[in-house]
Design a protein around this nucleic acid. Sequence first.
DNA 1: CAGCGCAATTTTGCATTCATTTTGAGGATG
DNA 2: CATCCTCAAAATGAATGCAAAATTGCGCTG
Lengths: 253, 253
Amino acid sequence: MKSTIPENGEPLTRPGGNGGEPSLHGEILSRLRDYVVEGNIAEGARVPERQLCELFGISRTPLREALKVLAAEGLIELLPNRGARIRQLSRRDLDELFDMMGGLESLAGRLACENITDDEITEIERLHYEMYGFYLRRDMHNYFLANQRIHEKIVEASRNATLRAAYANFAGRIRRVRYSANFARKRQRWGEAMREHEAILDALRRRAGSELSDILFHHLRAKRTAALEHLDEAERGAPIAPIGSTTAPNVNS
Amino acid sequence: MKSTIPENGEPLTRPGGNGGEPSLHGEILSRLRDYVVEGNIAEGARVPERQLCELFGISRTPLREALKVLAAEGLIELLPNRGARIRQLSRRDLDELFDMMGGLESLAGRLACENITDDEITEIERLHYEMYGFYLRRDMHNYFLANQRIHEKIVEASRNATLRAAYANFAGRIRRVRYSANFARKRQRWGEAMREHEAILDALRRRAGSELSDILFHHLRAKRTAALEHLDEAERGAPIAPIGSTTAPNVNS
DNA sequence: CAGCGCAATTTTGCATTCATTTTGAGGATG
DNA sequence: CATCCTCAAAATGAATGCAAAATTGCGCTG
């Protein structure tokens, strides 16, 4: 018998559905997803079923259900009789994921032009200038956060919960890479990105859907190029490492 | 002890991952998904857990795992302590889903322009003229199939398995509506659609990515309008019916 | 006769248990 | 000394069992 851990629930947003579940095994799903997305387990490493059971204070059944869902979401991989592993994203996967993000943002921009309010545009402008400040101060971290929030605002303004959920899903998958990729931002690319963002804002103000759609896709393409270049560089330093990694770090922390 | 059901596996494409699982509980997932997508259970109706267990010859555990995944995919809904129901798509949901499809096809078209071979274009042309034939003969059913195959070919030509999986997922969600919507095609809309398809083919030949992207989105928007108009008409005839439906049809057939 | 409440049955959710497979170590053998 | 085989230990995948919640049916009351 387990020690009846409270398990009281945050709202939690599922990627597949929009109605907020009040509480359920969805709590565990959400927690496990966060746990994985936040990088608590190394890429390619096994997902320690039993230890996670202890960590969450549950039995294997609900955990395995959550694992199945996470596999469907593309965060982990389920090998036939050899358990779950954190999904190792190949170069190809990253190409594909960045293009997916490009497509989704492109769509979000188009829809946003149909639905965005003036106030929302004002808010995005505010974020934009804030971001510009971080750019001038070379504050990479806050620049990244402001950047992310702008993109999220656009997705928000699309008024499409389905799109928002899909966006969250794919964003989760490449979260680690995106963040590390940010460190790659050479000054030059950074300036480019700022100019692109100005174009985005301009198109948004004019509610030029098709145009914004185009800009956003190419913006993401540039991001993809920068990110993957960075990744290649990093790999040159530390080649193909963690494919057979048996690491199962800080499960108990 | 179960009677050792063969369970030999079709390839099966998961929505989240691309590597083909040879066989697994994924077999059940796939079967159950098909079962739902094919409309064997009425919209809004409860998913009869026990009966499905008997149908598939398994216990509740793997079935419930599959249900969780299907819920994440958006095909069914999981109510806190009241089991699973076939997801009832609201008007809003349909709006959103059609726009999602528009975004995905838009992206597919853009990427296809980068990757499609001349042979593939030739094949799409062939399908196009075939479809044109069905159009002239007013053969709605085959027109629909050819149409669908063209769109699938474009997605195929995007060379993006992630996109393909997402496309399959969303296509599955609105499958029923899309098909029924087809019956709504007034002659006028039909002719419009043919013209749009010619523009699609033209842009594809010229590898005009941005242009194709735009055309495809608006093409899907038109489809959405037609489909939802049809739906509205149908609803006028038979208003809000199946919300409390307890139907659990041909589970044993 | 209609509305309400209560108890029995069903159903849901999770824990536990069981069979099968994989994995690892140790020893035997060439 | 390396390789392969055997066997034990662990883990995976699925079935069953059990407590709690919900649904249903029935009797009661107004």
